[in-house]
Simulated assay, not measured.
Amino acid sequence: MIPSVIAPDFSGIPKLNELASRDFLAGLPKAELHLHLDGALSPALMFKLAQRNQVELPYKSIAEIEAAYQFTNLQSFLDVYYRGASVLNTEQDFYDLTRDYFAKCKADNVQHTELSFDPQTHTERGIAFATVISGILRAMADAKKDWGISAKLVMDFLRHLSAESAMKTLEESLPWKDKIIAVGLDSSELGHPPSKFTEVFARARTEGYRVVAHAGEEGPPSYIWEAIELLNVERIDHGVRCDEDAKLMDYLRETQIPLTVCPLSNVRLCVFDTMAEHNLFTLLDAGLRVMINSDDPTYFGGYLNDNYFALADAFPVTREQALLLAHHSFTSSFISDDEKLKFIGQLKNYANNFQ
């Protein structure tokens, strides 16, 4: 079931054709649907947790950690990513990590987020599933109480591991399935097509999970087709290589399957050489349901607002385009239509009253 399409209506909103200033983009109510929690581990928190848990890192300072963030492709990033995750060992560590991300949501006016976690990253090294999810859920509850931020949890499977490992993780998740809205698929894309996990996703759907998957970032358009036809996904994470297949472009426009695009990530991982070459606005102008996300923000140079700013520096982004991207972020979420309409109302009220 693809998230319901609520048609945008910006009639009467002033100055739609004006370029969106940084102030306009910064205050824009928005949702984030593609965020990896381990990828929000800041160098400062990584260093702090390494000391707290007596984990030895190959870095002597926060500056050395930051200097390691020079990536040539997805795998070079993942090597550093998994090393950083080794500092997360206790429920409090996962709470601190998640709380830190929600503080950035508050600063960026993110009203709703659907954050992904990779339990296998931690269970494979002996950390209990309950330890991981308990810290995350506690931080989610506090973010709702303290800041009013709405959140859902997506559990991703690591595609470089076996389908059997993914099925085991799915089984482990079942006592928590009322706390997890969806399952997804991430990590090394090349050589690990969605078809590898057909049975896992079929079982997940029978358990009531909604389904998403990374496809078409480094992998070819055929991976997007597999995610749609074999996994029956409701959203595609990334999907930017869809423009290499005209039939796929038509299908995505007709079905309005959302694409959760991550501009800074795409440039840092050399999917595009520069931001000016990014195809997000080509996809938007073609009628595809795209929106902006930050992916792994501490590794790729910025949180959600930073991605909006980077696009606005590279393209003449109008207020109407920014509103449409934010509108897509709400309508593509896994919240109820009533909640979506509430957030869309906030979005339109903001645009009407912005000076």
Rank of each mutant, 00 (worst) to 15 (best):
G39L: 04
I65Y: 01
N73Q: 06
A63T: 13
Y95V: 02
A128C: 07
H160Y: 11
W176S: 05
N307G: 09
F201N: 10
P316Y: 05
A286P: 02
S333V: 01
G219C: 03
Y82V: 00
A85R: 06
E217G: 03
G184P: 03
R138H: 13
R159I: 09
H112E: 00
L161T: 09
F334L: 15
A139W: 14
A85H: 04
L230S: 10
P193K: 02
S165V: 07
L45T: 08
R99Y: 14
F77D: 07
K247T: 06
V80T: 13
Y59E: 02
L304C: 06
V317W: 11
T206W: 01
R22E: 12
R210T: 03
A202P: 03
H214I: 02
M167I: 01
M291E: 13
G135V: 11
Y223C: 12
G84R: 06
V261M: 15
I65N: 03
A85D: 12
T318R: 14
D100Y: 08
A314L: 13
T90Q: 07
E226C: 05
T131E: 00
I181R: 14
F201V: 04
R203A: 07
L269T: 09
H160P: 04
T274V: 02
F102E: 11
P29F: 09
L25F: 03
A310I: 06
P43N: 10
I2Y: 12
T274K: 15
K340S: 04
H238V: 00
T298F: 10
L264V: 01
A227V: 02
K168Y: 10
E171S: 14
F157T: 08
E56G: 05
T274Q: 15
Q70Y: 10
E254V: 01
N293C: 12
V154E: 03
A163F: 08
F309Y: 15
L49S: 13
D100S: 15
D295A: 00
A204W: 06
V233I: 13
S333P: 04
G135C: 09
G302W: 10
F47R: 11
N53G: 04
V200P: 07
A314F: 09
I228Y: 06
E64R: 01
A40D: 06
K145I: 00
H192G: 09
D285V: 00
I13Q: 04
G302E: 03
D337W: 01
I180N: 01
I136D: 00
S336G: 04
V200A: 15
N279T: 10
L347H: 06
F24P: 08
N352W: 12
N305M: 12
A215N: 06
R138N: 11
L280E: 01
V5E: 07
L324E: 10
D156Y: 10
T123A: 11
Q51M: 09
K340H: 07
D295I: 05
L16C: 07
L161H: 14
A276C: 03
A139P: 05
L78D: 05
L252W: 07
F354D: 00
E64N: 03
M140T: 00
I292G: 04
R268A: 14
K30M: 06
Q111V: 10
A68S: 15
S61L: 11
Y81L: 05
E66Y: 11
R241H: 11
